[in-house]
């Protein structure tokens, strides 16, 4: 399925706790170039914590985490920011800057990280991306004027403006109706094809997982107990915890 087996993310023995609460307890995971890896788990299982560590927003307590060959914890602020240009992060609630228009939201990372762009080039890039996510008409709108699905799309477009190699999606379909969920799932697949990204999709929605994932990884009690294709992880699962997760999503045949 995958073009190559080159690893873009390599996680070994990752631990993270908050006070007395152990969230990640020895996580091992690889993300290969050009794949969509879906990380599933119950709410509060540490899925979002994992990608926040990956983006350098949180620090692990122990373990190794390499992104594009760089050990995150060893990078200084400048090196980390350089690496962040290669990582796009789509937030659960979109995290659009609500005092700025859609255009300003998209300009914000671009003008601060890519030098010597003319106004025309910036506009062309923004309009191109808004076309890609199907929302060219929203360019001058404020985030408060957009629907939940539109905000998600704009959030994804904003992360793509820096042309990252890796995309991290945090609960991309949370709080959306089934039709908009389908649109977002299609967009995640489109991003992979069009921008040649490798992605980690965090979700507890099995429909999203099945539509977008090349591989699944199920986070249970701080560790990845099951990693593989959708069929391997769920349909052939023997573990009661995995079965119950699957049954809860009402899609077992």
């Amino acid at each position: 399925m995958l073009d190559t087996k080159e690893k873009v993310v390599e996680i070994r023995g990752l631990y993270k706790s908050f006070g007395d609460l152990d969230v990640l307890m020895g996580v091992d995971l690889d993300l290969y170039k050009g794949e969509n890896l879906v990380v599933l788990g119950k709410s509060g299982s540490g899925k979002s914590v994992l990608i926040k560590i990956l983006a350098g927003l949180l620090q692990q307590d122990a373990g190794s985490l390499k992104v594009l060959g760089n050990e995150i914890i060893k990078l200084n602020y400048r090196e980390l920011n350089k690496l962040r240009l290669e990582i796009g992060f789509s937030f659960q609630n979109s995290a659009l800057y609500d005092s700025m228009t859609v255009r300003e939201n998209m300009e914000f990372p671009l003008v601060r990280n890519v030098k010597n762009l003319t106004k025309g080039e910036i506009t062309k890039r923004i309009e191109g991306l808004l076309d890609s996510v199907g929302l060219p008409q929203t360019i001058n709108q404020m985030p408060s004027e957009l629907s939940g699905g539109q905000k998600k799309r704009i959030g994804i477009a904003r992360t793509l403006i820096l042309e990252p190699q890796i995309m991290l999606y945090d609960e991309p379909t949370a709080g959306l109706d089934p039709i908009t969920c389908g649109d977002i799932n299609n967009l995640i697949n489109q991003v992979k094809e069009e921008f040649n990204t490798s992605s980690i999709v965090i979700t507890h929605d099995l429909t999203c997982a099945k539509s977008t994932g090349d591989r699944m990884a199920l986070l249970l009690e701080g560790k990845f107990d099951a990693v593989g294709s959708f069929e391997e992880v769920f349909e052939l699962a023997e573990d009661e915890r995995v079965k119950s997760f699957y049954d809860y999503n009402f899609i077992r045949k």
């Binding site: 350089k82 609630n93 990372p109």
Partner: peptide, 20 residues
């Protein structure tokens, strides 16, 4: 209030991950 709500809605994190 403005910065607090930006923190709560992850807008500050969004700036951080976009290398700003």
């Amino acid at each position: 209030a403005e910065i607090g709500s930006m923190k709560v809605t992850e807008q500050i994190d969004a700036m951080e991950v976009s290398a700003t």
